[in-house]
Design a protein around this nucleic acid. Structure first.
Lengths: 210, 210, 210, 210
DNA sequence: AATGAATGAGGTTTCATTCAT
DNA sequence: AATGAATGAAACCTCATTCAT
C-alpha cells in the first residue's frame, strides 16, 4: 500500500535478474551460463541485464557478492553469540548448515570458484571467508585455554566442515540418480539440518575434544 | 616393423592430447575449455584432436576415464590389503590422499563434476565411486562387528574425507594468494601426505571409534 | 503569459538538443553518433529527443539545416555586396573563412557528407551550395568581361577554396598533436582569418587574374 | 606455373578481404561499415576475417596501412626525380592526382580520417604525410633560393593541393547526381588527370611563382 | 514536458567442427 | 598422420526506439 510502486518495480526487476543469474551460474558455472537463459528466467529482455546490472562478468560479481559476502557476514554475527566453546562450535556448524540448506545455490557456486582457484572471486568474498576462519580460530583457542579442546588448525577444521557440507549438498542429485548406489545411501536426506548435521557435529567435536 | 615407431609416435600424440585436455579441463571446466587451447598445448593441429580422439565431449570423457576411473580402481585394490579395520581406514585415507597428491588435476575436475550434479559423468566413473563407498561400508561393518567402531554411514565418511581432501587441495592456490590470511595458514603444505593427512586420519578415527 | 517562460524553456531544450547533436555528429559522423550521448550532452532524457525533434535521422537533418543551410544563405547575402570582382572574390573568401572559424562544427560535418557522396544531404543543402557556386560564376564572368580575370571554372575555384579551408580547419588537431611535424607548421594558427586567409586570398587571386 | 598454389590461395583470400574492407570503409566509414558486408563482398565467411586479419579495428588499420602508407611512400620516391623546382612541383601534383585517380577509395577514407581529427590514424600514416610535406618544403626552399618562388608555407600548399584534389574527387558523385547544378559543371570529368590537373597546376604555380 | 524502464533488431566476435590437400 | 583454411551456429553486447507513468 505505502510502497512506492516505482522503486518497487525496478528493485523487483533487479532482484529477479540476480536470482535468475544465481540460478544459472549455479547450474552451469560462469563460462557455461548463457546470458539469454538468465534473461529468459528473469522474464526480462536481455538488454535489461545490461541496463540494470551490466555485462556477464558484472552479473556474476553481483551474484557472488549477494550470496557469498552476505552469508559470511550473517554467519559471523551468529557465531558471536553462545557460551562454551563447544556450544560455539555447534552453533557455527548449525548455522553454516542452515545457510547452505536455505541457499541451495551457494554450494555449486562456491565449489566452482574453488575449482578455478578463486581467480575470479572478488576480494570481499575472500575476506568474508577469512573472517570466518579467524572466528573459528578464536573458538578453538578458547577451548584449548579452557582445557577442553586439543590444539588444531582452524583452517583445517573449516575445510573439513565446509568441505563435507558442500560436497554433501552438491552430491545429493548424483546420489539420488545413480541407481547402483545402495538404497540406504540414496535415501539420505537432502537437508543437512537433522541427522547429517548431528553426525558431523558429533564427529567434529569428538575429533577436537581433548 | 615400420609401424612400431609409427604407432609409438601416434600413441605419443594421443597421450599428449589427453594430457593437454586434462590440464585445460582442470583449469577451466568443460564449457570453459577451448579446443584450440588444448591443441596448442598438445602441440598439434586442431583437426588432430578429432582424428585421434573425437569431439570435445569425447576428449572430456577420455580424460575422465583416464583420471577418475583408473584412480578408483587402483584405490579399490589397495584398500583390500591390510589387517584391522583401523588399518584399513588408514590405508584408505592414505592412498586416497596420495592419489590426489600425485594427480593434481583430479581435484578440480571432480569438484566441477560434483558442482554440475555429475550430469556429464560417465557411468563407469559413478560405478567406481560406488565401489569405493561399499568398500568403506565393509570396513565400517567389520569394525562395528569387532566392537571398535560406532555404526556410521559410509557415504558420509567418504564425503567427509573426500570433501576435506579435495577442498584442501583446490583451496591451496587461493590460500597462498590471499595476503590477509594468517601466515600460519598460508604456510600450510600443498601436499596432503604428512601433517594434514595425519590430522585428518586422527580426526576421522576419533570420530568413528567407539 | 505563463507560456512565455514555458516555451522559452522548451525552446531552450530544443536548442540544447540541437547543439549537442551537432557536436556529436561533428565528432563521430552519423553512424558513429550515439543517441544516448546526444541526450547526455544536452542534459535531457533520451525520450525528449524523440518528443521534441524526432528520430536520429531527424536530428541529423535539423543539424544540417541549422548549420549548412543557414550558412549558405548568409554567405550568399554577404557576397552580393561590394564593388570590383576582386573585392567580391575577397569578400567571398573572407566570409567563408569567417563562417568556418565561427562554426567549428561545420567542417567535419561537411567533410563526412562529401565522403559519403552526399547521400544523406537534404536537398536544401545541395541547393545552397549550388547557389554559392553560381554566384562565384557570376563574379568570374564579370571579371572576365572586365578583362581582369582569366576564364576559369567556378566549381573548381570553390572546390579549391572550400577544400583548402575545410581541410585546413579539420587538420588543425592532427597537426598540433603530431610531434614529428616541424615546429613552424605546428604553430600555425587554428583560425583561418589572418595570415592563412591572406595567403589563400593571394594565391587564388594570382591564380585567376589575367 | 611456379607459384605455390597454397600460399596463392591464402594470399588471395587476405587480399580479397582487404579490398572488400577498403571498399566498405570508403563507402561508410569505420562506424558505418558492417563486418557482414565486408565478408559478403570478399566472398568469405565472416569468421575468416578474424582468422586472417583480426577484428574490425585490425581490418581498418590494415586498410589504412595498405592504402595510405604505401601511397605516401610511392609519392615520395616519384618526387625525388625531376629537375627544376617548377618541374618538381608539377611532378608532385601530377603523381598525387594520378594516385587518387588510381585509388578511388583513398579520398573518402582520408577525408573521414581528417574529419575525426585523425584520432584513429596509425602513426605510420601520419609519418608518411609528414615526409611528403617536408619534401614539398625542400622544393619550395630550392625555388626561393633560385629566385623563382615566393616564400610560402609548404603545409598550406599541400593542404590546398590535396584539399582541392580530394574534395574534387569525393564531390564527383554529388555533382553528377544533383540535377540543379549547371550542366557544364556536372559534365566535368571524374578524373583529375587532364584539364582539372592542368588548371590546378597552373593556379598553384601562379600562386607561388615570384 | 519529462523520466526510467523496456524492447527487438542487429552488430561484433567466438567457437566447435569439417574440408581439401 | 597432419595441416591451414573454411564454415555456421550461436554467444555476447549495443543501439535506436517506444512505453507507462
Amino acid at each position: 500500500m505505502e510502497e512506492a510502486p516505482h522503486s518497487d518495480k525496478s528493485g523487483d526487476t533487479v532482484e529477479r535478474i540476480l536470482c535468475a543469474a544465481a540460478e544459472v551460474f549455479a547450474e552451469s558455472g560462469f563460462p557455461g551460463a548463457r546470458v539469454d537463459e538468465i534473461a529468459r528466467r528473469a522474464g526480462v529482455n536481455k538488454a535489461m541485464l545490461y541496463y540494470h546490472v551490466g555485462d556477464k562478468k558484472d552479473l556474476y560479481e553481483a551474484v557472488i557478492r549477494s550470496i557469498i559476502v552476505e552469508t559470511a557476514e550473517r554467519l559471523e554475527e551468529e557465531i558471536r553469540q553462545a557460551g562454551t566453546p563447544e556450544d560455539k562450535m555447534r552453533i557455527y556448524m548449525r548455522r553454516f548448515a542452515a545457510t547452505l540448506d536455505e541457499n541451495p545455490l551457494m554450494p555449486p557456486i562456491m565449489m566452482r570458484e574453488l575449482a578455478s582457484g578463486g581467480t575470479t572471486l572478488p576480494r570481499s568474498a575472500l575476506e568474508g571467508v577469512a573472517r570466518v576462519i579467524s572466528l573459528i580460530g578464536g573458538i578453538l583457542d578458547e577451548g584449548v585455554a579452557k582445557g577442553v579442546f586439543r590444539p588444531i588448525n582452524p583452517f583445517l577444521v573449516h575445510m573439513m566442515v565446509a568441505g563435507a557440507f558442500i560436497v554433501y549438498k552438491v552430491a545429493a542429485p548424483v546420489r539420488e540418480r545413480a541407481e547402483f548406489i545402495p538404497e540406504e545411501v540414496r535415501r539420505m536426506p537432502r537437508e543437512l539440518a537433522g541427522s547429517v548435521l548431528g553426525d558431523v557435529e558429533e564427529m567434529v567435536l569428538r575429533a577436537i575434544r581433548k
